[in-house]
């Protein structure tokens, strides 16, 4: 307002009066309104009994071994049994730790593990970023981070991701890659605590189908029927 210096004092005073009064009135009115608004009584809900929601647990079952007895051809029966076991093997709970790279995947969606981790020399991480930096011996509800005493990646020779069930089958039967004979393989499937974790993964993670005992029975029946692999 460069010009205002030259204008006569009279209109300036008038301008001031016009400018000031409405502001003061508006301020006063606003304060009154604000006080009314603030003091206006509002009722808030109080605590009241609400029954806990019933959680319907949907457990996916495995078919019992007896279901397969009807298949007369032993080889066919063996393959069918392995296909049933494959429902477990191909669940995200198992596949996530059998990646084809040095990096595991995670969640039911099997997206790359976040943060970035790498298998390292022993399958349990790199210096200063070990599996044990975050994963404990048990699932931990407070953080949602899963855990197990043996938490680590399967060796790269046992990569399953991107393989067909037949390829996985031949891979686990090949001691050069699985580092297990059939007896050890069976024990791994039915007794190993890290494998067992697949059925008690905690959090929002979908467990592997069935139970470890049901799975063990299918694996045993598959091996007993010759351990045949799908093509």
């Amino acid at each position: 307002m460069i010009g205002s210096r030259e204008s006569s004092p009279e209109p300036r005073r008038r301008r001031f009066r016009i400018g000031c009064l409405p502001i003061v009135l508006v301020v006063v009115a606003a304060i009154v309104l604000a006080i009314v608004y603030v003091l206006y009584p509002r009722t808030m809900p109080q605590t009241q009994p609400i029954p806990a929601a019933q959680l319907l647990e949907q457990i996916e079952r495995l078919r019992p071994v007896s279901d397969f007895d009807g298949i007369p051809d032993l080889q066919e029966r063996s393959i069918a049994l392995f296909r049933e076991a494959g429902r477990v093997l191909e669940s995200p709970r198992c596949m996530n730790c059998h990646p084809r790279t040095d990096r595991p995947t995670q969640t039911d969606a099997m997206r790359p593990h976040t943060p970035w981790v790498s298998r390292g020399p022993d399958g349990a991480g790199e210096a200063a970023m070990r599996c044990s930096t975050c994963h404990r011996e048990e699932n931990y509800a407070a953080s949602g981070v899963p855990g197990n005493p043996k938490w680590k990646l399967a060796p790269i020779e046992m990569a399953w991701q991107g393989k067909t069930l037949g390829e996985i089958c031949r891979q686990i039967l090949d001691p050069a890659r699985s580092h297990m004979n059939r007896e050890e393989l069976f024990r791994h499937m039915v007794e190993d605590e890290l494998v067992a974790w697949a059925w008690t993964p905690g959090g929002q993670r979908t467990p592997a189908p069935g139970t470890q005992a049901e799975f063990g029975a299918i694996i045993k029946a598959w091996l007993d029927t010759g351990g045949e692999c799908p093509r």
């Binding site: 976040t114 930096t133 975050c134 404990r136 407070a142 953080s143």
Partner: peptide, 27 residues
């Protein structure tokens, strides 16, 4: 973050870096 995603809570446990948000007191 509380879920071992950000690393801001890192402490050393017996010399190893660990996320203290996912470390229960009892262990």
């Amino acid at each position: 973050c509380g879920v071992a995603q950000c690393g801001a809570c890192t402490v050393h446990v017996d010399g190893q870096p660990m996320r203290s948000c996912t470390l229960p007191l009892e262990i």
